[in-house]
Design a protein around this nucleic acid. Structure first.
Lengths: 156, 156
DNA sequence: TTAATTTAGGACTGTTCCAGTACTCAATAA
DNA sequence: TTATTGAGTACTGGAACAGTCCTAAATTAA
């Protein structure tokens, strides 16, 4: 089983790409090239990320996107939620009262614990930790380092 | 976003149902009735659970299924894995080398941490803890209790 | 003022995957 | 031998997902 959708995965890659050069304003086409992802898809995802408050957009010529906050202050959970919606383990974790079997289903109350664990795991990692600049630091188990580095990106 | 597929959710419900009366041998039709799930689907799931070593089957007249091990020794992760396959956060968590962008994708190495956290969360909860008998205990934050109780089951 | 650039916000489409069903074969008990 | 029940496989309808396209709005530059 795969937890994240392709698009959510892409979303993290795009956001990470933005995190490598936080000052820069990049447009959809540029980000698509850098991440080797389809242009139209990248454009679509950036809209979703903007909607979710992960990035800010400026329109018009020489417009583009940049992170809405410092990379250290943006969690993977936020990025994923902006694209795939709120995280829930089961159907009833999300639309709880809709489940007609609520009264005699014994498993429901227990999912919350698992739900929280997954949410915590995604919330614990920030975009800053995802950047290549922190790859080596990660290896050494050093604390994450904010600074920007040169370009990178992309996945399956 | 929803993490577990409907079928995996159902699988947990069925396994939990079996856990309420570990000694009993129940067939697919009976379990379907008790859980209010479609017969054919329950039959399909039980096959998958048997394949995954969660339940044991005996064929023939008066055959049926029962848990392969005590409910306290079966984790939710096992049940889910039997139905949805191994847990992975992204595509590359599962078929790693297939990803053509491996060489320049900076996010890949980081998914493992999240992956492990999710796996741990699912592995930490056992079937025994899912049974209605432990609902009240859970409420009181008591340690899980093994014993069987009367029938229950089902969900969305 | 006009033209070019870029995001916003839809609608649309093709494909894939998922849930559910049906059918045949093998094993067991009476 | 026969009825019952699981094993295994193949099939189908529908929903969700990934990806595309088009038009409108905002901004900049000429």
């Amino acid at each position: 089983m795969i937890i994240l959708s392709k698009l959510a995965d892409y979303g993290v890659i795009i956001a990470t790409q933005l995190a490598t050069q936080p000052e820069r304003q990049a447009n959809a086409a540029t980000l698509a090239e850098e991440t080797r992802l389809p242009r139209t898809t990248v454009a679509k995802l950036l809209k979703a990320l903007a909607h979710g408050g992960v990035v800010t957009a400026s329109r018009g010529a020489s417009g583009g996107y940049r992170l809405a906050r410092p990379a250290e202050a943006i969690s993977i959970a936020e990025v994923v939620a902006a694209i795939d919606g709120a995280i829930g383990v089961t159907q009833c974790s999300i639309h709880g009262p809709d489940c007609t079997r609520t009264t005699f289903c014994s498993t429901k109350p227990h999912w919350k614990r698992i739900n929280d664990a997954v949410g915590t795991a995604l919330a614990a990692m920030t975009l800053a930790e995802m950047t290549p600049a922190n790859l080596f630091a990660q290896w050494l188990k050093l604390p994450p380092k904010p600074g920007p580095t040169e370009g990178q990106g992309a996945a399956p």
